[in-house]
Design a binder for these strands. Structure first.
Lengths: 201, 201
DNA sequence: CTGTTAACGCAAAGATCTGTGCGATAGCGT
DNA sequence: ACGCTATCGCACAGATCTTTGCGTTAACAG
């Protein structure tokens, strides 16, 4: 009954400029920096100290470390993975997983991936993550569409989204579970997915 | 320089029986129960109250919530997934992913999976997880060995461990990221992996 | 069965976190 | 420009966590 406040309450004119924005970016920046250093949870006073902000501001605006992290992850939409166009499906997929694996191999990427799954179990968090991955997969899907136009794939084959998941999920699995660098067997992975997709028959 | 204390220090005769064991199982039980209810982090005093134990005992034995969780997850080796033997690779894999997906669909299973990736970023945690998955995959590998003996698979095919990962990782990905119930398209998933493995050529 | 002592529970003190008034600053509409 | 007020920083108080000493209990060795 209070979650929609932001949309409904037009009588409250929010101040998105100057000072508030400075506080916000300082806090989100400090949170991301902390995540990159491996910290998985900071107390709000600690975070406030790092950001050079009063703790009370954090309590008022976010209320918890998790809320800050969710906000920071949403704001850092660097998560955008470029969709390559090399001329062949194999080349596209290789470039794509290369980017993702490289991302997950960096301290920052791994920290973000970890934070993305571990923070926010309340209502909205799942929805946010689902939307994020849906759009990302929807964008990446183009690689398969182009391959199909080129005749590299059977017209009615497996579900593209399942194939993408087959490609991306193990990379995240590795990064989250064992912390391995998944950049080793990328070509083999891609070939497995190509075989699954029915390419080269 | 102090991590090997347990092995080296034989002058300290630990007391693993009766009372200590009771405290331990009460605490680990309470922790698992809390995880199942969706709690991702409990304060040690809270946990102690649930377990009916003195908080100081928790501070002395474990020191942090994360340490308790790691211990609890290791102790609950119910994670053992039975390896089926139905006579065909497809049947085996279907039964296997069915078990895993069912597990991840339950509140308990999802909570455990979540806790498994999100707790413990320090040195030993990764090693523990890696060992866990290595042995699990090593056990499950039998399904492919049998299939190969039956001639369902090419003698020298793809890496079995990569194939297993291809099968299992997306299930965990779904459970962790979107919270979806992955039991829907299991047959399709299995067929994708079979195609990747080069079965039915 | 008896002695030794690891591990527990209790309790108190110190540290840290959390929440909330209040005055000051500065964004935004007029 | 000017006024209104959202948001900030500061400071203080209450709650909660964390640590440590000490007496008690009971596991293990002989």
């Amino acid at each position: 009954m209070s979650a929609l406040r932001e949309d409904v309450d037009r009588s409250v004119r929010r101040r998105t400029g100057g000072r508030s924005a400075a506080v916000r970016s300082a806090v989100l920046g400090a949170a991301l920096a902390a995540l990159e250093e491996g910290s998985t949870a900071l107390s709000l006073p600690d975070l406030a100290a790092r950001a050079g902000v009063a703790p009370s501001s954090l309590y008022r605006r976010w209320g918890s470390w998790e809320a800050v992290v969710v906000d920071a992850l949403l704001a850092s939409s660097e998560a955008a993975v470029p969709v390559p166009d090399t001329g062949t499906l194999r080349g596209d997929l290789l470039a794509y997983v290369g980017t993702v694996a490289g991302h997950l191999a960096s301290p920052r990427g791994r920290a973000l991936a970890r934070a993305a799954v571990s923070s926010g179990h309340h209502a909205g968090a799942h929805e946010v993550r689902r939307r994020f991955w849906t759009t990302r997969f929807e964008l990446a899907r183009v690689m398969f569409d182009r391959a199909r136009e080129r005749g590299e794939l059977p017209a009615s084959g497996a579900d593209d989204l399942l194939l993408l998941e087959l490609l991306v999920a193990p990379l995240h699995f590795r990064a989250l579970v064992t912390g391995d660098d998944a950049r080793a067997a990328l070509a083999e992975r891609v070939d497995l997915v190509l075989a699954a997709a029915g390419a080269g028959r």
